[in-house]
Design a protein around this nucleic acid. Structure first.
Length: 830
DNA sequence: GCACTGGAAGAACGT
DNA sequence: TCACGTTCTTCCAGT
């Protein structure tokens, strides 16, 4: 943080480090237990309870105010807490001073978490048989734990044990409904315990509160453990407690059915003994603190789930090869499973770890993250859920900081995994919102991302012994609501990300659920208020349900001297608005403003090289290298990769900044700065240089505190230490037609495919390849659902900009986010 | 019978 | 406070 040379961090920011160093054990796999210190989900949301303060009469924790700083009576600013953790008793004391010294010495080490790399098998071997094949149905939501709730770390650990225990058959599933069966109206299960307002998870946990063997408990029908009090009353009495808290609350003597080995016990105990959280000055708004929460690429422990992480480092890259479908109806606890998240048209999401050649097996963690424009964090209202009875992916469900994780082995042969066992469980809004410390609202908060994370044990000189490199990548947003998927318009891509303030440009919006009454509106916000809004003229003749052809309206102020970012969205009526999409108005006149400069990027088709100063029309997404810098989640086409590498080396020769400049970076990823709340604004004047491919690690990036934050695909790539044109983005493409009606952009930006040389293509077709195309009249050309034979990938006549540039938050959500963002952005622009 | 899926009823919520 | 529309949650029925 503040110590990184040149980082530009203001004085007054706290430095911190978690000192947890100890002799790293031998490790052949890097799935250490999550550090208890990270037990707070989504760090900013819920101040973990001070251990000494637990067990109030009310049965609630007394949360520390550390993560919610009340600025004014009506304004509470989230800010990170600083967690200071003592050293484990069995720690090598010699390492401790070193840690501190390192920290004081400045440099990126201040960013490090000196936490122990736990026994690599601790995670799995906590309980016998802890690695279960995925067909084992998970206890689903039974084990959901209030991500945002305050939990003592010990409670977390114990809950994890219980979770593991129940997962592996030490006790029958205690949740009778999901996924094993559905509640019937007349079934005995439909007792008061299963009334609409009852929560299985809650109540079943309550059952366990009675103590005793969990197995026998769970075998009893839910009604038997009905607390026999009004639901609301019961909720109130327990609302401040996550199930696990409640569990712990009422079973002080509760013993894990799977006792920890002593070593592990020892390892677990110390952090909780001295956990404390120091408030960060309220002047640090959450946006900034989030953006500055640069996660250590290398640490001896797993970073918290809400820490932004890069998707790429050096040659290592975690990439989503096949994106999940944009819609997946999550299931409630009271429902049966709705299956695993799927890709389109068939198959499942595929994640690949590139650049890892070791034979050591790795694990891929999957959890459900948020999809708003804040940095990704575990979604409080959704949890990952193992599903599928015939899935091929072995998996292990666990809980970290109240967030369910799916651990899926990464095959060393190809480091590619099809995520065919990941369902999404919806938690009841009321259950979550009433939780103490939870500030998010569940209503209409139905977009999620699948977040994939892996930890690579790297050897020197890349990293110090025992340290791991954490990479994370998030999927495109997934709409989880039933209704929304049917009615809300969805912008999947646009062909234009900016134009002059005069407007008039033709803008093509590709997406779904467009109606004849659909309107396209441009708006600008300031300090949370709508400052300007203008409706674009829609060319109805050339629009259809998947495509809107509009004219960009003129901006309200034609005399702007700098680009102005606005948002656009599609409205099908009140409350039926799409997510917002960033759009930029450019000044009329030219100026030597680096923000306006653009990199000279060789076109893909050998076309002209655009000058750095390009007319607004250059922002048309037809030029893949311009706006398709998603990179990490694109199917790997070897030729494209080769081109990519070659191009990258040419476009950004060593010693030059990626993409030419920071400005270029943001220009090439037009959504970047807005997506991350002005994250790019925080970038240092000298954007970290591209590491020499041949230069030995540690990479110069190690010195940069700006590596973090991959809340969205674009972020990940944008922040990668290499120029981030994705392989696909540089793949040769058919000529781009000027008419938008030759065919729909059947593929969102990340998929505009070249022939499937991907060996996984057969089983994992290109994402979204099912999307229909249209004929000039807008008729559906085909669904591509007919199997591989039909899965012929059409030429991509239209190149749209990345959907990753879509904010993917609803209008209402953006309103809800409100002033925090605006305040941050405005300050960042200064 | 189970897992999965789509639809819809009715409660809860917001305006 | 009420009416109404929207959203959420639960349940049904089909494959």
């Amino acid at each position: 943080m503040g110590a990184a040379p040149g980082s530009g961090w203001e004085d007054g920011e706290f430095e911190f480090k978690l000192v947890f160093e100890e002799d790293p054990p031998e490790h052949s796999i890097s799935i250490p237990s999550p550090p208890p210190s990270s037990n707070q989900r989504a760090g900013m949301h819920s101040p973990p309870p001070r251990r000494a303060a637990i067990r109030e009469f009310s049965g609630t924790y007394e949360s520390l105010p550390a993560r919610s700083v009340q600025v004014s009576e009506s304004c509470v600013v989230k800010c990170p807490s600083i967690q200071i953790t003592t050293i484990s008793p069995d720690e090598d004391p010699q390492t401790i001073p070193d840690c501190w010294n390192i920290g004081r010495s400045g440099g990126w080490d201040r960013e490090r978490l000196y936490l122990p790399l736990l026994d690599p098998f601790t995670y799995r071997d906590r309980c016998p048989g802890s690695l279960s094949p995925s067909p084992a149905s998970s206890p689903s939501s039974r084990g959901w734990l209030s991500p945002a709730s305050s939990c003592d770390s010990l409670l977390v650990e114990e809950e994890e044990l219980n979770e593991a225990t129940s997962s592996f058959g030490l006790s029958p599933s205690s949740r009778p409904t999901s996924p094993g069966g559905k509640k019937r109206r007349n079934s005995p299960l439909a007792s008061p315990c299963t009334s609409r307002r009852g929560s299985y998870s809650e109540e079943l946990h309550a059952c366990n509160l009675e103590g005793g063997d969990s197995a026998s408990q769970s075998q009893a029908p839910p009604s038997s453990c009905e607390l026999n009090i009004p639901q609301k009353t019961r909720k109130t009495s327990l609302e401040q407690l996550s199930p696990r808290e409640a569990d712990q609350e009422q079973t002080p003597g509760h013993s894990s059915p799977c006792p920890l080995p002593d070593a592990q016990q020892t390892r677990r105990d110390p952090p909780a003994l001295s956990m404390d959280y120091l408030p960060v000055p309220p002047s640090l708004a959450w946006g900034r603190t989030r953006a500055s929460a640069h996660s250590p690429l290398f640490s001896n422990a797993l970073p918290p789930l809400d820490w932004p992480l890069p998707s790429q480092f050096d040659q290592y890259e975690l990439r989503i090869e096949v994106q999940p479908r944009p819609h997946h109806r999550a299931h409630y606890e009271t429902e049966g499973s709705r299956g695993a998240v799927k890709a389109a048209p068939t198959g499942h999401p595929v994640v690949k770890l590139c650049g890892y050649t070791e034979r050591k097996p790795l694990s891929l963690q999957v959890f459900v993250g948020t999809a708003d424009d804040r940095s990704i964090r575990p979604h409080p209202f959704y949890q990952i859920h193992v599903t599928g009875k015939m899935v091929g992916t072995a998996s292990h469900e666990s809980v970290q900081a109240g967030t369910k994780l799916l651990d899926i082995p990464l095959n060393p042969e190809n480091n590619m995994t099809a995520i065919d066992c990941a369902g999404i469980l919806k938690l009841r809004n009321s259950d979550i919102e009433l939780r103490k410390g939870e500030t998010d609202v569940g209503r209409k908060n139905t977009r999620v991302r699948l977040v994939f994370r892996t930890h690579l044990p790297l050897a020197p000189p890349v990293a110090a012994p025992g340290r791991v490199l954490a990479l994370q990548v998030a999927s495109l947003p997934i709409e989880c609501a039933q209704r929304s998927a049917q009615e809300l318009p969805v912008i999947e891509s646009v062909n234009l990300t900016s134009c002059s303030v005069e407007g008039g440009e033709e803008l093509l919006l590709s997406g779904t659920n467009f109606l004849p009454i659909s309107r396209v509106l441009f708006m600008e916000r300031g300090t949370g208020k709508l400052q300007w809004e203008e409706e674009a003229h829609v060319d109805r003749d050339n629009s259809n349900e998947c495509l809107l052809c509009v004219r960009v309206p003129a901006y309200s102020d034609l005399s702007i001297s700098r680009p102005v970012s606005v948002s656009l969205y599609v409205s099908n009526g009140k409350r039926k608005r799409s997510s917002t999409h960033c759009f930029k108005y450019l000044p009329l006149f030219k100026e030597e403003d680096p923000l306006l400069s653009r990199p000279s990027v060789p076109p893909l088709d050998g076309g002209p090289v655009y000058p750095a100063e390009a007319p607004p029309r250059m922002d048309r997404g037809f030029h893949m290298s311009e706006d398709r810098g998603l990179g990490f989640h694109l199917p790997p086409y070897p030729a494209a990769i080769a081109y990519h590498e070659e191009f990258c080396s040419k476009a950004d020769p060593p010693g030059e900044e990626p993409g030419g400049s920071r400005a270029a970076l943001s220009e090439r990823h037009p959504s970047f700065e807005n997506l991350e709340l002005g994250f790019t604004e925080l970038l240092p004047p000298l954007y970290p240089r591209v590491p020499q491919p041949s230069s030995p690690s540690p990479s110069p990036w190690l010195d940069s505190p700006y590596l973090s934050s991959s809340p969205s695909p674009s972020h990940s790539s944008s922040l990668s230490p290499f120029p981030t044109e994705s392989p696909i983005s540089n793949s040769p493409l058919p000529p781009v037609p000027t008419s938008p009606f030759l065919q729909c952009s059947a593929f969102p930006p990340e998929v505009c495919p070249s022939p499937p040389s991907n060996p996984y293509q057969d089983t994992c077709p290109a994402p979204y390849s099912h999307y229909e195309g249209w004929d000039p009249q807008g008729r559906v050309l085909g669904t591509g659902q007919g199997g591989e034979g039909d899965a012929k990938i059409p030429e991509c006549p239209l190149e749209f900009t990345s959907s990753a540039s879509i904010h993917h938050i609803t209008f209402e959500e953006s309103e809800f986010i409100g002033e925090d963002i605006q305040a941050f952005q405005s300050s960042s622009h200064l």
